[in-house]
Nucleic acid binder design. Structure first.
Lengths: 112, 112
DNA sequence: TCTGTATACCTATGTTCACTAGGTATCAAT
DNA sequence: ATTGATACCTAGTGAACATAGGTATACAGA
């Protein structure tokens, strides 16, 4: 019953960090932004994003500030320097990983 | 304490199916082959591969035949036609997924 | 006014899946 | 006789995504 395709481990974290690199955002906004940025290919719901944001904040990768906006209270998140470093590391892992798999999927002759 | 990087969901399945597309293999061989084919980037141990093989067989994606070889008994696995179809589907998912993420990682201007 | 919908936050529970860490047995070599 | 490689296996743990709720405010429309 997986709504998202099955290659999801660590992907929400990676995307959230990447989007917050461009600009601060609040949780509800991030949910929509992830889906929009990936063309609905990856679309984790609030039940995934909110706990993730809390964890990332607890780890010191994000800074949260609740701030009134448009009559409501929103919680805006920004990347910390630690968060930037994590983003770089994850991006690196992601690239190495996908490259390796791509290579296997592509050709035979792995024995050479 | 993850030995492999964290983007692993469904990856062992994909790689096992892909490798078995080229030729039949036995479990112990597959463990080494996955690691070799990915240059050790993805290297699931026996505790991952064996249960996976059993599940895939139960799903009818693989056919298992135990056969004596070199004084030992090995269990050789081959792709069924259903397994081939699954491989295609997973490859497709994988490609769509990585493309989308790649796109997000690369540039800003997701708002356009 | 009242109802519905969108916004905006949250969490408890379930489920899947890789990971760890074992265990058994055979064979070859020291 | 003991070690190390081969070859199979499983039980238990944990991480992370998915489901399915819940609360509260703002606002438009009937």
């Amino acid at each position: 019953m997986t709504a998202n395709p099955s290659f999801m481990s660590g992907v929400p974290e990676l995307l959230v960090l990447r989007l917050l690199q461009d600009r601060e955002m609040y949780g509800y906004e991030i949910v929509a932004a992830v889906a929009a940025a990936t063309g609905q290919v990856v679309a984790p719901k609030e039940g995934v994003i909110y706990p993730l944001l809390h964890d990332l904040e607890k780890e010191g990768l994000l800074r949260a500030q609740r701030r009134p906006a448009g009559g409501r209270t929103r919680v805006y998140y920004t990347l910390t320097s630690k968060g930037v470093r994590r983003l770089f590391d994850l991006t690196d892992d992601w690239t190495r990983m996908t490259r390796a798999i791509q290579h296997v999927l592509k050709g035979p002759s792995h024995a050479v």
